[in-house]
Simulated assay, not measured.
Amino acid sequence: MRAVVCRRYGPPQGLLIEELPVPRPGAGELLVDVRTAAVNFPDVLLVANAYQVPAPLPFVPGSELAGQILAVGEGVSEFAPGDRVFGTVPTGAFAERVIVPAGQLTRIPEGVGFAEAAAFGVTYRTAHHALRSVAEVRSGDWVAVLGAAGGVGLAALDLARQLGARVVAAASGPEKLALCRARGATHVIDYTTEDLRLRLRELTDGGAHVVIDPVGGPASEQALRSTRRGGTFVTLGFASGAIPAIPLNLVLLKGVTVKGMELRTFGEQFRELERRDRDELLGLLAAGAVRPHIGARFPLEESAAALALVADRRALGKVVIDVGR
């Protein structure tokens, strides 16, 4: 089988396409014929050896996939060969075949394609947990989303609207702002040409109730300063590459609650909330109420270019890799 292999840490351009043996599923595992894989920012960090949980060399990058079950390991009764599924793995998704524990897979609803399913799970689960369970967004709230044209940002925009919130989408450049408008943002802000702190206060009549920040960098402090008294600021990552230093006097004076949410450990901490959120989210996908925006598609041979697009923050929505021949 063909696979993308990382044999040395560094930029995506160092990745190789190799022929590897087809793995066999063990007890509780499934062998999946990968049709589409989605690129996430942690994939870039793992290749660069900059993620908080390193991947030992050599490894196959990729954490998010959709495909069809080829073989079922001992003890698995809930799936059968031929089932269309999507799910996540720590690494290994950028390959024609991958072994996945049964508990990490979900059936793809009718009417949803492999690319949409692959692009859905990580970003929409992250955004939904952040909005629904961490920030507890209510109908009528003003929600500010930073990096709103990226994968997590667009998912947060979509889901905040499903919760009845009004969304201010902050992004860079006219193309990204146009996409945010098309997805239903109430207002948009270009934080490369506008004063984010001032514009957020103006547009929300005094400040956002909730800020969703998957970007970090200088925009974080500006958004925190424009969060209204008693509001909630949720940090989800640092796609800008810069971890901001927040003056704690802002938290003290404004009574703002600052929270962090990391998808890998959320379910371990809040099992009941995770189960509720997952059921709600799958219902929205099955009903067609939300669909990920796929901004770019690449063949497996161009996986390095797909990761570079995400690394350079040029992606609109999700970037996917068509793995199947």
Rank of each mutant, 00 (worst) to 15 (best):
G113F: 03
E110S: 05
L70G: 14
V22D: 00
I321T: 10
R278K: 08
A311F: 07
E272K: 15
G113A: 07
L248A: 03
R325G: 06
R125W: 01
N49P: 08
G164Q: 00
A50G: 13
S133E: 11
A66D: 07
L179N: 05
G92F: 08
P101C: 09
G150W: 08
L284H: 10
V60T: 13
M261P: 07
R107K: 09
E221N: 12
R199W: 12
E110T: 11
I243V: 02
L70M: 14
F114S: 05
V137I: 13
R297I: 06
A71E: 14
A223I: 10
A148W: 13
Q68N: 12
A245G: 07
L281P: 05
R166L: 13
V34C: 06
R229K: 11
F114Q: 08
K254G: 13
F298R: 05
A3Q: 08
T123R: 02
Q13C: 04
A287I: 02
V256T: 14
A144E: 12
R183C: 02
G207S: 15
V134M: 10
M261H: 01
E110R: 13
N249G: 04
A102F: 01
G283Q: 00
D158R: 06
P23K: 04
A80C: 12
L252H: 12
T235L: 10
K318H: 09
E96L: 00
G206N: 15
